[in-house]
Every structure is written in C-alpha cells, then in structure tokens.
Design a protein around this nucleic acid. Structure first.
Lengths: 205, 205
DNA sequence: TACTTTTTTCGACCGTCGGTCGATCTTCTT
DNA sequence: AAGAAGATCGACCGACGGTCGAAAAAAGTA
C-alpha cells in the first residue's frame, strides 16, 4: 500500500476520533469505539497506530500543523505591522484549537481531558515561540516595539493566550476572560511603549 | 472513629501515593499498589476515598493548602511592600509544587503525568488569584503600582510563573527559563511604572 | 488464468485495572 | 456480655488496551 493510501486510512481514524471527542473525553472513548466510528475492526487500529496514545499524538499534530504553517508564512510578510500579524496568528490558533477546547459544562466542573489539551498546548507553544519571536524582533528593528526581551515576550504572550484560550487550566466566564485579555493588552502597550488603546484591535475574541 | 483518626488514615494513603509518584506516573500506579504501599487492603482505599481520581484531588489539595495559607497571611501584612510579598508567595508555591514538578528526563521527552500537574496548577491559580489581586490592589492604593487591571495582572503573573515553574507545558533549560522570568520582570516594571531593575529581586530562582 | 506471496483486516482472547460487595473483624455503647 | 456500628478485606465483576493467528484482499509472477 502506498504512503498516500496509508495516510488516508490514518486520517479516517483521526476523523473518527475527532468526531467522538466532541461528545466525550478521551478516557471515556475506547479503542473499539474509535474503530466502530471509523468503520473498521479494532485490530486494524493497531495496524496503523502502535497505541491509543499515539492516535492522540497524531491528532494533535494534525491540528497544530495548520496554524503553524500560517504563522510561518506571516513571519515573512514584513510589510504588515507586527501586531496585526500577531492577531492573525492568534486567530489561527483559536480556530484550530477549538477541537480540543474545554466545553461549557454548566453545573459540573471542567472535564478531565487535560491530557490531550496539555499536549496540544505544549507543542503549540514550543513551535510557535521562535516564529513569534522573529516577528517581535522585526517590530523592534522597525521601531514599532521597544522591549529588551523579544523571546521572553513571545513566550509570555503565548502562554497566557494559550492557557486562557483553552479555558481548562484557568477557567473563567467570558467576562473574566475578557478582563484578563484586556489587562494583557494594557501590559503589552506599556511594555512595548505603545500608546494606550493602540492595541485594542487585538481584542477580536 | 474520630475525624482526626479518619484524617490520619487518609494522610497515610496520601503519603503512600506521594511516595509512589516519585518513581512513576499516575497512569502506571494501580489502586492495589497504593493500598499495598499504605499497608492496607484495596477495599479499604474505597472506604476513605470514592475513586482513584479523588485520591489525586486530595493530594493536590493537601499540597496547595500550605502556600495558600502563606499567601493569605501575607495579604494582611500591608506594611510590607507588595512586590516583596509577591516574591514570598512565589517562593512558597515553588517549594510545595516540587512534589509534582516534571522531573529531568535527560534523553526521553517529558513524562505524561500531565493530569495531576494540570490539576495542581488549576487549583493554585484559581485560589491564589484573589489573594494576589488584593495585594496588587493594596500596592495600587499605596501608589507603588500603577496599573488599571489588578485582577488581570494577578492572573497573568500566576499563569506565566506556574507554567514555567511546572516546566512541562513549556519545557525549557534553566537558561531559557531565566530569560523568560527576566522578561516578565521587565514587563512588570514597565507595566506597573516602576523603574527598570527595581524588581530584579524577584529573581530568587 | 492459476499460483504464490505479501499486505491488510478482523474479533476472540489475555492480563490488568478501577470499582463493588458481602463476609469478617474491631470498636464502641449500654 | 451482647448487640450495634464502624472499619477491613480480597475475591469478584465488567471494561479496557493491546495481542495474535487466521483469513480475506491485493499484488506479484508465469
């Protein structure tokens, strides 16, 4: 079987898992269920993946590849304002992370699918950090940003946004999340020596 | 049986789990193992805890109670500088979180005990946020801090520090971690309108 | 086409796990 | 002392992740 056909089959399994993930968390999804949803036998799952965890890994990878690509492309568009590019990156992250985001569980506490989201966040932060750092450095070179620690700034922004986006590590109602983002923007304005309110457009949530 | 004796028994189980946790991750520790390490039968575990997860919850709670107590006490000591109190809180968090921190796994990637650390971080952030917010508000009232979003600032600082402290969500070598903390301090100085270098003492890592 | 070989599919099966349960032992009460 | 209430236990249960060899499907060969 060609690599392409092989990937199709893997994607078929990944699609099934992603669909199931919308209704319940990983711990409550059995391999048999995934197989059934994918329309294949349970044994076949293990022909394409060595373990249940590895299916999750693959799904995470498939989901963060797209925003990463977007970010890398944006890093090259030096004619666009660095903050605008930052906003576009966050939007891309937001869209693709929705597959894993903690659902609104009104009465009960947040579901314990910590595992997969942590994996997603970890990869996203580590892969996105150098790209965002580069964009910030361009902003410094162009005089739009005044700050001495571009890599640190990139990581701080990524950590806060990823954690708040996920809404499981530091769960908040929308109102509180907005307040935190507003504070981050204010902190960014003062930190990068931009006038107050000039970064409000980042608030596209 | 008195409540005190009951708590002793629970602590005995918690101690056993904490000891086992140093060697392997949760997923690889069975309830029978915990029982054996605690010197009791498996069934007795379920006399004191309703589920395996609840044992973890209790262990997490036991570990974040102390720094939380410390923080609450500090919140009352308005004569001490808010930043000094912040530093003391971080130190307390640092000490008590070591039970869950990701070990240095030289060759391999970070162990997958994500679950428990995420739980610890979540509780720590949510419990610590109001306390730290109060301290920041005091700093604003006293004129040592100039910033419009005290709660947001508290959450941002807590998120970044907790994530970096944990070293699993955004793993870095010590050199890189230092750079990020340095950047956070710089951002804090500019954000709270304090002179550059004035918060360097927070760097007690 | 007829055959062998290789790839792919499958579900019964295995060991282990979290959790239950009634039997049993211990400790309190009167 | 005797019964009630509290505490302990490990055999047992259903379900899970993962294995395996048989068998079906596909590909190669003449």
């Amino acid at each position: 079987m060609t690599d392409l056909q092989n990937q199709n089959k893997q994607n078929q399994i990944l699609d099934a898992l992603q669909a199931l993930l919308r209704a319940k968390n990983i711990q409550n999804i059995s391999v048999s269920e995934i197989a059934q949803a994918a329309g294949i036998g349970k044994g076949s799952i293990y022909y394409y993946f060595p373990s249940k965890d590895s299916i999750l890994d693959a799904l995470v990878e498939r989901n963060y590849e797209k925003p990463l690509e977007t970010a890398k492309n944006l890093a090259r568009q030096t004619e666009v304002s660095p903050f605008t590019r930052m906003a576009m990156i966050f939007q891309a992250c937001r869209n693709s992370s929705s597959a894993f985001r903690a659902q609104e569980t009104p009465g009960a506490d947040v579901k314990e699918d910590a595992f997969i989201r942590q994996k997603y966040m970890k990869h996203l932060i580590s892969e996105m950090k150098p790209v965002l750092t580069e964009i910030i450095q361009q902003g410094i070179a162009q005089g739009q940003i005044r700050f001495d620690h571009p890599a640190a700034l990139a990581e701080i922004v990524l950590i806060v946004l990823t954690v708040k986006l996920d809404n499981a590590l530091a769960p908040s109602d929308p109102r509180e999340t907005e307040e935190t983002i507003l504070g981050l923007i204010s902190l960014l304005e003062k930190g990068t020596e931009n006038p107050e309110g000039s970064l409000n457009f980042l608030m596209t949530w």
